[in-house]
Design a binder for these strands. Structure first.
Lengths: 216, 216
DNA sequence: CCTACCGATCGGTAGG
DNA sequence: CCTACCGATCGGTAGG
């Protein structure tokens, strides 16, 4: 029966993608050979090529798959109708959880997107930009007024910095779990939001320097 | 005269290291060939090997050089005798400045340390740990009491997350300069520090779950 | 005529 | 400071 075989094909294909993601995350895309991936799966290289067209396709599917799940996650949280603060808290918690569950995919996304073609990379970056924009809108709703167009995007990136960077140092066997770290991140961010002041624009700084010069 | 040639040798060597850092940062260590580096320097591959022993040596010197400059930076700031808050503000400002000036070295340090040998990587990580410990002590001095041993290290890593991640998205030609972003980061972090609560320890959570189970 | 799968090797290029 | 090369390994595919 053709259907049973097809199921195995997809199952094996998923296993290969998971093995490839683990190796890409550890060794980088150029540092990983198809022979490495085949060895990790316990199959021959020709059999590996039975399941995937080439090495590049693996990278593309891992990156697009992960970023698409993150995009879906944003939609789920938005659909819950929470107030801005609770929505941000929920977004951070869900992202930390997803990163922890798909840490290899996360590593590939943050390290190896540069090896995609321009078109494919832009596709991934477009989805990432949508996600950042959703975070930025939630941040603007939490603290309206303060430099909405200037600061909300950089603030969203600082928040992503904390949670993205977490998975370069975080050890699951440490004293704190991901579930415990997520609220620490959100508390720190929400608490600090009120302390942030809109900096002078670069142009204003230059004007001040210029006018200070005339007073010499 | 041998001395004149030696000066040129070191100058050329520095140029090669800067070119290599730019390529490693862009393409990764395994994705960069010695031919790439020679081409970027406008020299032949054999001449490149006149200046450096091998590809690995370039990676090691770039990583150790950068992390050593960061360590020296910490010492400089500590020697200024500032109060904890001002010391943290100064540390962040100087690190952001150093990252901006040595963005290629920074990219290599954050992406390619994994390709060092165990011994060399541990040497680099030891210096990094000293730097993180210095930040953690300053944070503990700013906000004493709250989970000193449990949270100060993770909080330092969250701070590093914000400034390390900055250089994956920051564009120098954008609306905000590094000089403007540094105080935003520090304000956000210092302002949020008071909002952070010590989470229940993992053990306590497990005890609660276990005792909740007995009440069913 | 299909798939699943092997040992061996292809044309090119890596670091040296 | 060049061309010319090496042992090995790369991503990908041949025949069977």
């Amino acid at each position: 029966m053709a259907r049973a075989r097809s199921e195995d094909f997809e199952l094996n294909r998923d296993g290969i993608k998971r093995a490839a993601a683990a190796l890409f995350a550890r060794q980088g895309f150029p540092g990983t050979s198809m022979a490495d991936i085949a060895r990790a799966c316990g199959i021959s290289k020709p059999l590996l090529y039975h399941y995937v067209d080439d090495k590049y396709q693996l990278l593309l599917e891992i990156a697009v798959g992960h970023v698409s799940r993150l995009e879906a996650l944003v939609g789920e949280v938005q659909a819950q109708g929470l107030n801005p603060t609770e929505q941000l808290r929920r977004l951070v918690a869900r992202f930390v959880q997803e990163y922890a569950e798909a840490s290899d995919d996360h590593g590939v996304l943050t390290q190896d997107v540069r090896f995609l073609s321009d078109a494919d990379r832009n596709h991934v970056l477009d989805i990432e930009r949508k996600i950042v924009a959703a975070f930025a809108r939630t941040i603007a709703a939490v603290r309206p007024g303060l430099g909405a167009d200037t600061l909300q995007q950089p603030l969203a990136m600082l928040l992503f910095g904390m949670i993205n960077w977490m998975f370069t140092w975080f050890r699951p066997d440490g004293r704190l779990s991901q579930e415990q770290m997520a609220p620490v991140v959100t508390d720190l961010f929400l608490g600090g939001l009120d302390a942030v002041r809109l900096p002078r624009s670069a142009e204003t700084v230059q004007e001040l320097v210029a006018s200070a010069g005339t007073h010499r």
